[in-house]
């Protein structure tokens, strides 16, 4: 074996090693475990181990669970794995101003702590928007959500 073919083999081998590293980052399914957020189901499955540390919880706002207190300073809702009834869900108490798109059935990520009373206290609320963009339906201007927001307490039973 001449020294130049040997060098090429070395280079090829090293590039394969590097490629394997990148491929494992991509497809090694590591991401499923090292998450930006947990779903309520995953968090509840941990039982008491989830109490205490600051964690991020992600899911959708369960329909019919949205409640403001009278002065609109506190907000409570349930975050569920999916918007199907019966999906695992966690009650969340938030003191953060939600962005304008916040509503029932929308994806959210809340940062905070979970405790023994089975309530998630959040100090940071992020709306997780889907990749869909649509114009308003004919007859309901882009301001439509404002009407649903102005009477949220009434609407949420």
């Amino acid at each position: 074996m001449t020294s130049s073919t040997r060098n090429r083999l070395f280079a090829l081998g090293a590039l394969l090693v590097a490629g394997a590293g990148l491929a494992y980052v991509a497809f090694g399914n590591i991401g499923q475990n090292l998450v930006f957020y947990w779903t309520p189901g995953e968090m509840l499955a941990q039982g008491s181990k989830a109490y205490g540390p600051t964690i991020r919880l992600g899911g959708v706002v369960q329909p019919g669970s949205l409640r403001w207190d009278a002065a609109h300073t506190h907000l409570s809702f349930r975050v569920a794995d999916t918007d199907q009834p019966g999906a695992p869900s966690v009650p969340v108490l938030s003191s953060e101003t939600p962005p304008q798109m916040f509503r029932e059935r929308i994806g959210v990520v809340v940062e905070g702590t979970f405790d023994r009373s089975q309530t998630f206290t959040s100090s940071r609320l992020m709306v997780n928007h889907s990749n869909e963009y649509r114009p308003p339906k004919p007859g309901d201007g882009p301001d439509k959500w404002k009407t649903t927001v102005s009477a949220p307490t009434a609407e949420a039973r």
């Binding site: 991401g31 090292l34 957020y37 990749n131 869909e132 649509r134």
Partner: peptide, 14 residues
């Protein structure tokens, strides 16, 4: 990974 940023839009979603 699960992230806050939405995935790439496609003509079907826009």
């Amino acid at each position: 990974w699960k992230s806050l940023h939405q995935v790439q839009s496609t003509p079907r979603t826009v």
